[in-house]
């Protein structure tokens, strides 16, 4: 089972929710935590895993065999990212523009293009152990200045162990990196705040999940500010609100120290354990719906 934690808006509390959820999971050794916010991974600050040595993650970029090349220009026609320039007696490759699709090598009539790896970041794996938890922790770190995070996100997600429950901490927004992070999840928790800004971006995230056909539940953070707009929206859209997180001094103080609140407060631990129950309830009812659809269709 894969649970993604996402939000349209940034800074709503995705990492707070995902790390506390992970640390409140009551089946020891059955949890993987995957931080897919590879541009700014930070869940490790709260989960505190011990990492093994990092592995480089690369994308394939073209290397031209000038001996075989006839300068026909097929490769630059294929490349929509303009990563190749074919001149009279010269081919220039701009690796930083290359998305690693392999089209140039595939279509080269002379087989003059080899694909060579170019590192875009690293993946780090580790384990976080405490008296009540034992978490497989993974994250990606994109090299600053790199434009494309999805290949790194996909590499980290390839490590998902289907026998475990995986929590994915997604980047904010609704574009390619978020789609890469949440796709193939069984359930997505959307963290938002009850403000017009929060609602606007929540709606974008909901639309994205509809396209990906992933069931969602909403967590309203800073629930004692703003208006009822998010509640009303969720009612209208039929999306369950799984939790309200009010402003709380204890939570904020622990957060500021890089500590997860569930490890220090029984009250918060109970609340996050309850979310797990709600997630399983919603997940089961979605499963039933899918099965019913299949029966009806059959």
């Amino acid at each position: 089972m894969i649970i993604a934690v996402a939000s349209g808006k940034g800074g709503t509390g995705k990492t707070t929710v995902s790390v506390n959820l992970a640390l409140a999971f009551n089946q020891k050794e059955k949890l993987q935590f995957i931080d897919c916010d590879v541009e700014e991974p930070n869940a490790h600050i709260f989960v505190k895993p011990v990492f093994d040595s990092p592995e480089t993650v690369s994308i394939p970029v073209p290397e031209i065999n000038e001996g075989k090349c006839t300068y026909c220009g097929r490769c630059k026609e294929i490349c929509v990212y303009n990563a190749l320039a074919v001149l009279k007696e010269n081919v220039l490759v701009f690796p930083e523009l290359c998305h690693g699709c392999g089209g140039c090598a595939y279509f080269c009539p002379q087989e003059a293009i080899a694909e060579v790896p170019r590192g875009i970041g690293v993946m780090e794996k580790g384990t976080a152990k405490g008296s009540a938890f034992d978490i497989d922790f993974l994250h990606g770190r994109l090299t600053p200045g790199e434009a494309m995070s999805p290949p790194l996100i996909n590499a980290v997600k390839n490590e998902i162990d289907s026998r475990k429950v995986a929590i994915i901490d997604a980047p904010p927004g609704t574009s390619c990196p978020v789609v890469a992070a949440v796709k193939e999840s069984d359930f997505c928790l959307l963290v938002t705040e009850p403000t017009p800004f929060g609602l606007n971006d929540l709606d974008l995230a909901v639309q994205m999940l509809k396209k990906l056909d992933i069931p969602a539940g909403v967590i309203i953070n800073r629930s004692d500010i703003g208006t009822n707009c998010v509640e009303d929206y969720c009612k209208q859209e039929g999306i369950p609100v799984l939790m309200h997180i009010p402003w709380d001094r204890e939570l904020a103080e622990l957060y500021a120290k890089g500590e997860a609140v569930v490890l220090h407060s029984a009250k918060w631990r109970d609340l996050f354990e309850k979310i797990w129950m709600r997630i399983f309830e919603v997940f089961d009812s979605e499963q039933l719906k899918t099965e019913k659809k299949e029966v009806d269709a059959g």
Binding site: Y81, N82, A83, A85, L87, L92
Partner: peptide
Amino acid sequence: PSLGASGGAGVQTAQFIA
């Protein structure tokens, strides 16, 4: 023709000029 390229406009325009 490369005015609206999503990326690599410089490379494409230079290629065009060449």
